[in-house]
């Protein structure tokens, strides 16, 4: 009898790598062969992990088709198996993997669409918080307005892309009929929020990601407003942030 750790070592390696033989510790028995018996575990591992990725990246699956997605996910599972039994945490590296996966290089927008889907997934599990209304901002005096800091909601995330990711996501998820999105469609910035139990994807105006990044860094509103180019419609941008539930609090009178 091999020591248990040696048995588990060969078992674990053979599960993830189909070219490896069934571990010698697996006994010959009447009925199904050792290979068929071990294949049940191989299939359990791979099928369940491919399914968990498909559940988190349904638009990627739709864009590339089920067969291509499965083949891609199987390579990802082999190279980046989960490091935690909490499968909600599995797949963070899938978007960047898509950018390096040779068969997918002709679809460069996949990476950012996958980042949007992962942001939705993370928003689903993010900490809960109440959202603030824009009324709380409107109630401030002009001087305080300059110095106030906005606390972003734990679920609020921005994904900026050179590709029209919000249009791609929306038409593959919500639209009754898929719209054609041409190659000249400009890049888009997505804001993902989950004010209550539902996750939302919003299209942000150009440069709004800079405003949100400055706010997330703790910059006072006056300073954050200065980080966006002239011509940016600040009041519309802020109204969208608040109505989307991306702000969970105002901090007044805080100094550096």
């Amino acid at each position: 009898m091999l020591p248990l750790d040696a048995t588990q070592q060969t078992f674990a390696h053979a599960l993830l790598r189909p070219e490896l033989q069934v571990p010698v510790a697996v006994a010959e028995m009447v009925g199904p062969t050792r290979e068929r018996r071990f294949a049940v575990h191989r299939n359990n591992v791979k099928a369940s992990l491919v399914a968990t990725l498909a559940a988190k990246f349904p638009v990627i699956q739709r864009l590339v088709g089920e067969d291509f997605f499965e083949a891609t996910a199987l390579v990802f599972v082999e190279r980046h198996p989960p490091r935690s039994p909490v499968l909600a945490e599995y797949g963070a590296a899938f978007p960047s993997f898509l950018g390096t996966f040779e068969p997918a290089v002709d679809l460069p927008y996949l990476v950012d669409v996958a980042r949007l889907e992962w942001a939705r997934h993370e928003a689903f599990h993010a900490a809960d918080a109440a959202s603030s209304s824009i009324g709380s901002l409107a109630a401030l005096a002009d001087d305080d307005l300059e110095s106030v800091r906005l606390t972003l909601h734990p679920a609020a995330t921005v994904v900026a892309s050179a590709w029209p990711i919000v249009s791609i996501w929306t038409t593959n998820t919500l639209d009754a009929e898929v719209r054609r999105i041409g190659p000249d469609t400009p890049g888009e910035i997505a804001l993902i929020t989950r004010p209550d139990e539902e996750v939302f994807v919003h299209l942000l105006p150009q440069d709004a990601d800079r405003l949100i990044a400055a706010l997330a860094d703790g910059a006072p509103l006056g300073e954050a407003a200065a980080s966006v180019p002239d011509g940016f419609d600040l009041s519309t941008g802020l109204a969208l942030l608040f109505s989307a539930g991306a702000v969970s609090g105002l901090l007044e009178g805080m100094s550096e």
């Binding site: 009898m1 248990l4 048995t7 588990q8 070592q9 078992f11 674990a12 599960l15 993830l16 510790a25 575990h41 359990n44 591992v45 369940s48 992990l49 968990t52 198996p81 989960p82 490091r83 935690s84 039994p85 499968l87």
Partner: peptide, 13 residues
């Protein structure tokens, strides 16, 4: 095993 979660309930001798 070695930090990798295999997502199956694997058998023991």
């Amino acid at each position: 095993h070695e930090g990798v979660f295999l997502n199956d309930l694997l058998p023991l001798p």
